[in-house]
Amino acid sequence: MKLKTALLISAMALAPAIASAADKTVGFSQIGSESGWRAAETTVTKQQAEERGIDLKFADAQQKQENQIKALRSFIAQGVDAILLAPVVATGWDSVLEEAQDAEIPVILLDRKVDASDDLYMTAVTSDTVYEGEVAGKWLVDAVGSEECRVVELQGTTGSSPAIDRKAGFEKAIADAPNITIVRSQTGDFTRAQGKVVMESFLKAEGAENICALYAHNDDMAVGAIQAIKEAGATPGDDILVVAIDAVPDMHLAIANGEANATVELTPNMAGPAFDILDAYWADGTMPPKWVQTESRLYTADDDNQAIYEMKKGLGY
């Protein structure tokens, strides 16, 4: 795929400016900026709104639901045309969503879902985390062919839903490949430092020569693990294949340097599809399905990772 197309899909997704979207006001209640990905989502959302001439009212909740509820009430009071909500927790939204419904303001959930009746919101735009794991697993199945492959797995925070889903998706993908086995699986808490520490113990316990691939539930852990592999005297990306999920800039750089092999993108562009849905709704009242999945695109060494790295770096990752 050409770089230009990639950019279009991944971040910009330039939709033709439709007249009906212009001069509309949309409120966006963001969780906060607890991770680079979250910061990128904020940046992309603002860019998307600007492209389409939408007046975006942005509210940072600093990880607090009460702040989000306040922001939503304020959006309702201001009479915005629609609300984007990235909910910090799943429960406790019913009454404020009802208020929005009473005011006839459509609400679109971004990135996460809530435990509320689905007629209280228009739709939820999220990625499919199980599918992300599947894409990573499929890549590995294709990459190793019929060779024996002993895989070590760096899990996300124990008990968190992305960790559970990404593990399940990966296991589903390799279920039909008896030559691929997960020999060690331990949590790296989604952090770079723990990724490195845990990978060190994997390397000691199994021996670098006995590990064929690393699957990490996020790129940060993979980046940490890559350093551990190098310090153990092995070559990441070659002796040990590295596949992870998220597609953060540093991972693109690692792929560009040949130290990692593949990553599945969790796109920060949740707002693009959301605005598309709103455009269609404002144009002719089209109602979307209750769940809109974002694309989980696979990046490998075939892409121009250096260029993607440069571009993504500016998004606030």
Binding site: F190, D220, Q227
Partner: peptide
């Protein structure tokens, strides 16, 4: 030491 170890300052998680 922790930052140098991972070649990056992870303000969210360092020393958590």
């Amino acid at each position: 030491i922790v930052a140098a170890d991972i070649k990056g300052a992870d303000a969210n998680n360092a020393g958590l």
